[in-house]
């Protein structure tokens, strides 16, 4: 099993009162698997995904990635683990505006301890995702779909075992959303596991669908 989540919980405080964003949630994902986490805004999807990525510390529960408890690692080790094993596509615009599309894709490669160049690989990925023409463009000059595809290419750069994407089609038109969904399928077919949070039914046609509401899983 690639990912095992056991009884994960996270509370937030609002107006002086605690409320559970993620409540005693467990799931597992096999290598090359595809899970769509479906739920409304505020259902706890993003909090859950951010804990899976090691960006947010849970109040209780355990996340085991390939047998490794990721919160047993210190911050630096967890950061390098994320760089090495995980591709993460955050919600909304997530490209660095001071770098070209190509440099955005290359960047994660150089944040770890890898040696050698990243140019050939980044260009190959961009070509695969239909981005060859925009490699020199800066994010403000890209369309929403292009930005999302660049973010996806960036997430693929270090050949991760799992890609987590938070609302990857939330602000895209239906045609572009469909293209992005097809890309996920294509990449999943190449062996990369996916865990998506969405309220887009088009995306939920792919893989296993889990519904989440008030931080709890409703169905499988």
């Amino acid at each position: 099993m690639l990912l095992e989540v056991t009884r994960l919980s996270k509370k937030y405080t609002r107006g002086g009162r605690d409320f559970p964003a993620v409540d005693n949630l467990s799931l597992s994902l096999e290598r090359g698997g595809f899970i769509c986490l479906l739920g409304r805004s505020g259902s706890g999807k993003s909090t859950f995904l951010n804990m899976l990525a090691g960006l947010l510390t849970p109040d209780a529960g355990k996340i085991s990635f390939d047998g490794l408890d990721i919160f047993s690692l210190d911050d630096r080790a967890r950061t390098l683990w994320r760089n090495d094993k995980l591709g993460y596509v955050p919600q909304g615009a997530s490209l660095l505006s001071n770098l070209s599309a190509l440099d955005n894709v290359r960047l994660p490669y150089h944040l770890g301890s890898r040696k050698g160049g990243s140019l050939k690989k980044a260009r190959g990925l961009m070509s695969d995702l239909g981005l060859a023409k925009v490699e020199k463009s800066y994010p403000p000059a890209l369309s929403g779909g292009e930005m999302r595809r660049v973010a996806l290419a960036r997430a693929m750069m270090n050949e991760p075992e799992l890609i987590i994407a938070d609302e990857p089609t939330s602000d895209l038109d239906s045609e572009t959303a469909r293209e992005i969904a097809e890309l996920f399928t294509l990449l999943n077919d190449r062996g990369c596991a996916f865990l998506l949070a969405t309220h887009d039914l088009e995306l939920s046609r792919h893989g296993r669908v889990l519904k989440i509401s008030d931080g709890r899983l409703l169905s499988d």
């Binding site: 990525a53 960006l55 911050d75 630096r76 950061t79 390098l80 994320r82 760089n83 090495d84 993460y88 955050p90 997530s94 660095l96 505006s97 960047l107 994660p108 944040l111 770890g112 960036r154 270090n158």
Partner: peptide, 14 residues
């Protein structure tokens, strides 16, 4: 921007 860098794998020291 800094959060994105951290997500991508930049350590605090970096």
């Amino acid at each position: 921007e800094f959060s994105l860098l951290r997500i991508l794998g930049a350590t605090r020291g970096w």
